[in-house]
């Protein structure tokens, strides 16, 4: 089935871009396509690094991770039967990340002290909020340049969502990341974003800055349901 029809988005280094849309509009599909998990029928995904342009279409997920693009999948997708520490190690599977393992690990425990306290606990036995922290930390372990975060707020209490957004912002600034985040939680997501897109039925219907998004009619119509 064709899910994405007319999607063109771009990000420049150091930006935080959000992709807004309700369920079933193609947000997760777009992220999976960038990661090479779902192959696109047509189109290009260009990644530019140090002046060299690479088309990501046709590359395997592991090759894309090797280029420094990592995703935090929807619903966290941790390894529930492995410990927190083992989950983090697995985030650093690519060769370049293994060299920075110790540094990244201590950084993760600094941002999320809870994970440090629970390093030997099984990931599946933690609360939803802690699991989301672990999912983010696992992605950070791969020393990414670009972080794709798919609906981080799913199933979390509002206070946890706002803490999470603060952590994402903090990590982005400390590690010089470029972030693409899909969200349904409009107000929380616009707080940390520079720009955003609204996707409706697989088409980008609106693009604009943070402020433009907030006052937009489409947002009200499709998104807030008024």
């Amino acid at each position: 089935m064709k899910v994405l029809h007319d999607v063109s988005i771009e990000m420049t280094e150091g930006e935080t871009v959000i992709l807004l849309g309700t369920n079933g509009n193609g947000k997760s599909t777009l992220i999976k396509t960038i990661m090479g998990i779902v192959p696109p029928n047509q189109g290009e995904i260009i990644f530019e690094s140090e002046g060299v342009q690479i088309n990501l279409v046709g590359k395997k997920p592991q090759e894309i991770v090797n280029m420094g693009i990592t995703m935090v999948p929807e619903g966290r997708r941790l390894f529930p039967q492995l410990t927190v520490e083992e989950n983090l190690y697995l985030g650093a599977f690519r060769r370049e990340a293994r060299q920075n393992l110790e540094r990244n690990l201590s950084y993760c425990f600094e941002v999320f002290p809870r994970l440090g306290e629970r390093r030997t606990q099984l990931a599946g036995s933690m609360s939803g909020g802690e699991q989301q922290m672990l999912a983010l930390a696992r992605a950070i372990m791969s020393s990414p340049k670009i972080l794709l975060i798919d609906e981080p707020s799913v199933g979390l209490a509002p206070i946890l969502v706002s803490q999470l957004m603060t952590s994402i912002k903090e990590m982005k600034e400390n590690l010089n990341l470029t972030v693409l985040m899909t969200e349904q939680n409009f107000s929380q997501a616009t707080k940390i974003a520079d720009r955003g897109y609204i996707i409706v039925h697989g088409k980008i219907e609106f693009r604009g800055s943070n402020v433009e998004l907030s006052g937009n009619e489409l947002v009200k119509q499709y998104y807030l349901g008024t």
Binding site: I37, P73, F79, F93
Partner: peptide, 15 residues
């Protein structure tokens, strides 16, 4: 062990 626990998640993580 990542493959054993969740193959799709392992794929996403770059394993």
């Amino acid at each position: 062990s990542a493959v054993r626990d969740d193959e799709d998640a392992a794929e996403c993580t770059g394993v």
